[in-house]
């Protein structure tokens, strides 16, 4: 039987490590919900955000707050530019999902090649050291990085919840997500909702890559792998359910963490793809467990006519 303290340690480390995973997943799920877009360009945004922080803090020696701000501004600007000059154009043309997929993936590859040219392929971290002070709480090692990661993630998720629940722009985003044509008839600007979701996603991505880059080395190829894990969590959480996707991200991170008790570390990645494949084949609309607790409608829904 494994020592409970070891299990607690794995649980805590898994939760802390899931922080950036959650932020990437929420960013991906938000764009998918509002824009109906499998936005693999977010991998490119991750690369831009990370290397902006890396350059401004290590080469230009800016203070951390300024480097992070620069990364947020630049990433949001690129997100807006991609939306206005590319995605909106494809949307106007009624391009197929395949074209959006190609564009977003190729954009990320272009960014990765440019970053390779500029910074090489050596793994880099935002700060020279990835070590942070550790304290022991009930036998469990808790580092400053862990607390920072969990804290930043919870604050950003709370802010996102507040934005969606209590602001007009947030509710407009949901209206556009439900039916963009109907929302426009009611005077809601779908373009504004798309831009806002892109900017929010950029902020989440910057926070996520900051946490990742202060813990592990990043190369220009790393972001696409991070995006794929976000895709898996989004699918497991169920399309259109942003916070369920976040819970799924934590669940997958814990699954990976605890799997170390049963399988060698090198097989952990395979576990994720296994979950993705079978989740899609068995539950193509998301795992139904996330729907438990959802209130039932008070009155029967009107019957729609065949063909609607």
């Amino acid at each position: 039987m494994t020592d409970p303290v070891i299990l607690l340690q794995i649980l805590w480390t898994g939760i802390a490590m899931s922080s950036y995973f959650v932020l990437f997943t929420v960013a991906f799920a938000l764009t998918l919900k509002v824009e109906k877009l499998w936005n693999f360009a977010q991998a490119g945004l991750m690369g831009i955000a990370f290397y902006t922080m890396f350059y401004t803090l290590n080469a230009a020696h800016w203070p951390p707050w300024l480097g992070v701000t620069a990364a947020v501004v630049l990433t949001a600007a690129v997100s807006i530019a991609v939306e206005v000059w590319a995605i909106a154009v494809l949307r106007r043309r009624h391009s197929s999902g395949l074209i959006f997929f190609i564009f977003t993936l190729i954009f990320s590859q272009l960014v990765a090649f440019v970053l390779t040219l500029m910074f090489g392929t050596e793994p880099e971290t935002i700060f020279p050291s990835v070590m942070s002070p550790v304290r022991i709480v009930g036998g469990v090692a808790v580092s400053d990085w862990d607390l920072q990661a969990v804290g930043v993630t919870l604050v950003l998720l709370a802010l996102l919840y507040g934005l969606i629940r209590y602001t007009r722009d947030g509710q407009f985003m949901l209206a556009v997500a439900d039916n963009d044509k109907l929302a426009e008839i009611y005077g809601i600007s779908a373009k504004r909702a798309y831009l806002l979701s892109g900017i929010v996603a950029a902020v989440l991505i910057c926070a996520g890559i900051y946490l990742y880059g202060t813990r592990a080395g990043v190369t220009p190829d790393v972001p696409i792998g991070l995006t794929l894990t976000a895709v898996i969590a989004t699918l497991v959480g169920g399309l259109g359910r942003i916070f369920s996707a976040a819970i799924a991200a934590v669940g997958l991170a814990l699954l990976q963490s605890f799997s170390i008790l049963f399988i060698p570390a090198k097989w952990q990645a395979l576990l994720l793809y296994f979950v993705l494949f079978f989740a899609l084949v068995l539950f193509p609309r998301g795992i139904p467990v996330w729907r438990i607790g959802r209130p039932k409608p008070l009155a029967p829904m009107p019957v729609t006519q065949a063909g609607e």
């Binding site: 794929l228 898996i232 090198k266 395979l270 793809y273 993705l276 494949f277 084949v281």
Partner: peptide, 23 residues
């Protein structure tokens, strides 16, 4: 399954098998 779901499932199949080859 169809459309985008098939696209992502096939991606999972590809990356899973590649991981096997890698390991």
């Amino acid at each position: 399954i169809e459309g985008d779901y098939l696209l992502i499932a096939s991606l999972g199949f590809q990356l899973g098998l590649l991981q096997l080859v890698n390991n």
